[in-house]
Simulated assay, not measured.
Amino acid sequence: MQFQKKVVAVLSWGLVVTWMALIFFLSAQHGEQSAGLSEGITEWVNEVVEQVVPAAEFQIDEISFFVRKNAHFFAYLLLAILTLNAVRRSGGRGWISMGVAFIVSVLYAISDEVHQLFVPGRSGQVSDVLLDSTGALAGIALYAIISRWLGRKRKTNNKKRAN
C-alpha cells in the first residue's frame, strides 16, 4: 500500500511538470506563432458564439482578447489544481498545502513572464501574473470545495454501511 501511495505521488508531480512544460512551450512561441494559435482558437470561439447567439455582433479583437486572457486564467487554475493534488499526495495537508500550491503557481507565473521577455514578439506583463494568480486561487478554491464535498459524501456512505 505504501509503494502505491509513492507511485501516485510521483505520477502527480509528473503531471505538474508536464503541465509546466506545456506552459513553457507555449510561452516560447514567437509572437507570430502565438498570434496564429490565438487566431485559430478565436475563429472557433467566434463560430460557436454565432451558432449559439446568431444576432450577436462581437468584434474579433474582443473575442481574441477574451480567449488570450482566459487561457492564462485556466492554465494556472489547472496548474494550481495539479500542484495542490501533488502536494496532498505527498503528505501535505490543510492550509499549508494550499499555500505551497499557490506559491509554486505564482512563482511559475512570474518565471513564465520573465521567460517571455526573451522571446521575440512577446512581452512579460505584471497584469498577466495577476491574472495567473487569480486563476491559481480559483483552482485551489475549486479543489478545496470538491475535496470537502467528496469527504462529506464518503462519511455519509460510511455511516450508511455501518448501519
Rank of each mutant, 00 (worst) to 15 (best):
Lys155Glu: 05
Arg152Tyr: 13
Val119Asp: 10
Ser34Asn: 07
Lys160Glu: 14
Phe3Val: 12
Gly92Val: 06
Ala101Glu: 03
Lys153Cys: 03
His115Met: 05
Phe66Met: 14
Val16Asp: 06
Gln116Val: 03
Thr18Asn: 14
Lys155Tyr: 06
Gln125Ile: 11
Gly139Val: 09
Met1Val: 12
Lys155Gln: 07
Ser133Thr: 11
Gly36Pro: 10
Thr18Phe: 15
Ile23Met: 13
Val45His: 01
Arg89Pro: 04
Arg68Gly: 00
Leu77Asp: 03
Ser34Met: 06
Lys159Cys: 09
Leu82Met: 10
Ala162Arg: 08
Trp19His: 14
Thr42Ile: 03
Ala75His: 01
Leu15Val: 05
Arg148Val: 03
Glu113Ile: 00
Ala141Gly: 10
Thr18Leu: 15
Glu62Met: 07
Arg148Thr: 10
Asp128Asn: 07
Arg88Leu: 03
Ser38Gly: 11
Ala9Lys: 08
Val16Phe: 09
Pro54Ala: 12
Tyr143Lys: 02
Ala141Ile: 13
Lys69His: 02
Gln59Lys: 15
Arg89Tyr: 11
Phe102Arg: 03
Ile41Ser: 04
Phe66Ser: 07
Ser105His: 10
Val7Met: 04
Trp13Asn: 07
Phe65Ser: 15
Ile146Phe: 06
Leu77Ile: 02
Gly151Thr: 02
Trp95Gln: 12
Leu117Pro: 04
Gly121Asn: 06
Val129Gln: 02
Gly121Ala: 09
Ile146Ser: 05
His115Leu: 11
Ile145Pro: 02
Gly94His: 01
Lys6His: 15
Tyr108Phe: 15
Glu32His: 15
Ala28Lys: 09
Phe65Cys: 08
Glu43Trp: 13
Phe73Asn: 03
Phe24Val: 11
Leu130Arg: 05
Gly99His: 11
Arg122Trp: 12
Ile103Gly: 08
Met1Pro: 10
Gln2Asp: 11
Ser64Pro: 03
Ile81Tyr: 00
Asp128Trp: 00
Tyr108Met: 09
Ile63His: 01
Gly40Lys: 14
Leu84Cys: 10
Trp13Val: 06
Arg148Ser: 12
Val7Leu: 13
Gln51Val: 10
Arg161Pro: 04
Lys160Val: 14
Gly99Ser: 09
Gly31Thr: 13
Leu117Phe: 08
Glu32Gln: 15
Gln125Ala: 09
Val126Pro: 01
Glu57Met: 06
Leu26His: 15
Ile96Phe: 03
Leu107Asp: 04
Arg148Ala: 12
Thr42Ala: 07
Val106His: 04
Gly91Tyr: 05
Val8Trp: 13
Leu26Gly: 08
Phe24Thr: 11
Glu113Gly: 00
Gly151His: 00
Asp61Trp: 00
Tyr108Asp: 08
Ser123Tyr: 12
Met1Ile: 12
Val7Ser: 10
Gln116Phe: 10
Leu150His: 07
Arg161Lys: 13
Val87Lys: 00
Ile63Pro: 06
Leu82Pro: 02
Leu15Pro: 01
Lys155Arg: 04
Lys159Thr: 03
Ala75Met: 00
Val49Cys: 14
Ile63Val: 04
Val126Phe: 03
Leu107His: 03
Arg122Leu: 12
Ala101Gln: 01
His72Lys: 02
Asn163Cys: 10
Leu150Asp: 01
Phe24Tyr: 15
Arg148His: 09
Asp61Ile: 03
Ala138Cys: 04
